[in-house]
Design a protein around this nucleic acid. Sequence first.
RNA 1: GUGGGUGUAGCUCAGCUGGUUAGAGCGCCAGGUUGUGGCCCUGGAGGCCGCGGGUUCAAGUCCCGUCACUCACCCCA
Length: 420
Amino acid sequence: MATDQYQPLQGMSDLIAPEIDLWQALEARSRELLDRYAFTEIRTPVLERTSVFARSIGDTTDIVQKEMYTFEDRGGRSVTLRPEATAGVMRHVAGQGPEALESRLYYLGPMFRAERPQAGRKRQFHQLGAEILGPPNAAADAECIVLQKHLLDEWGLKDYRIRINTRGLPEDRRSVGAALRDALSPSVSALCEDCRRRYETNPLRILDCKNESCGREVDRLPPITHFMSSEARDYFQEVLRLLKRLDIPVEEQPRLVRGLDYYVHTVWEITGTALGAQDAISGGGRYVIPIGEKEVEGVGFAMGLERVMVALREQKADRKLISKRPKIWLISAGTAAFEENLVLMQSLRMRGLCCGMDLQGRSLKAQMRTANRQSAAHVIIRGEQEMERGTFVLKDMATGEQEELDMPGLMERVQALTPF
RNA sequence: GUGGGUGUAGCUCAGCUGGUUAGAGCGCCAGGUUGUGGCCCUGGAGGCCGCGGGUUCAAGUCCCGUCACUCACCCCA
């Protein structure tokens, strides 16, 4: 029944079995790896004051202008569902003492953008991200990229590309913008409508316009590093050198600038193949974010987990990530056996085993069907005969072999089935 | 926000130019085996044909609106 009242809001979905297995596997592997990289988790609220996002992401960006879920709370304050997590994390860090400015934090959770849904784009989606706080440091930038690659490899994702560029020092922004404007001034008329607007508001964004004629004009320009200070160029070269040293293949992409205002210095993007139009699975960069009177500096990235999962499914790598514990299904014939099985099931669970049984007292055949559907590795069958003899039938569902055991024998066999 | 495609059983879909009781496969339940799953056979349950309006003697089918899904643009993860 596809009736509206049973559906979640547009672009949002209920995550449930069997897909949830992939979510849990991805999350578990990620947390383990982030821990190995000495990051700790932070969970910030999903709802923040609107200014937290508007100031840091940038008033002219599409995210702030048309993609945020913004509304007034009961006290008349403007609040917003987070469209990304970096701003909230920085809000937290800015409120802490100076030692927090050296933190290594990661987050994993839902983000909200009121866009039109399409392949690889939901209104509620999930990001995994990490931040290394602190002033510009090429090693930190490089480590972020290393970590992302490691995550993708850990998940078993193949065929992705890492593209990288620099936006220069914060102080360079004004001069780079001005230089770009000068360089483009003869060809403004050749630019698309959006870019003519960007020419005034944010000339850097013209660089990654997908429009062909804009691309032709941009290709005539020297790379933007040309307009930057030598300090910015040296910093970027150092990042590239370290990445090479760490054996991370990246492609320089002089037109990559990314869409959020807070980025400075190194920016990068990871794209996957076979993802449709929305092929960016991860993006990141160094940033300077104003919060209240302070500015917080750091470097970080965010990965779109829905897109990662689409890519994993496409490459048939999703099933390899999921490991389910073997399950035992208890089968009873007769009410006496049923009740004894309830007791047995509980004691097996206390011993760390994963098990279940039909609670409705259906036919043995129906119980077996359920066991099969539950993909139980083994079943324990108990009926009148076994009750009389004080035994249990243990059946291996894969081979179909079964044996009759007494209690000590059953416990011994069953204990051997636990992974621990 | 703009444009294209699609809404029929739990799922995937068929339903020719409008015509009587709306179908298939899978899944589910039961039986074939009153103590054994998967494979096979038989039967059964399950449909406001997304929703609202209109045209017509008659609408799942045509028209309008609306909602949702989906793909793309814009942009982003």
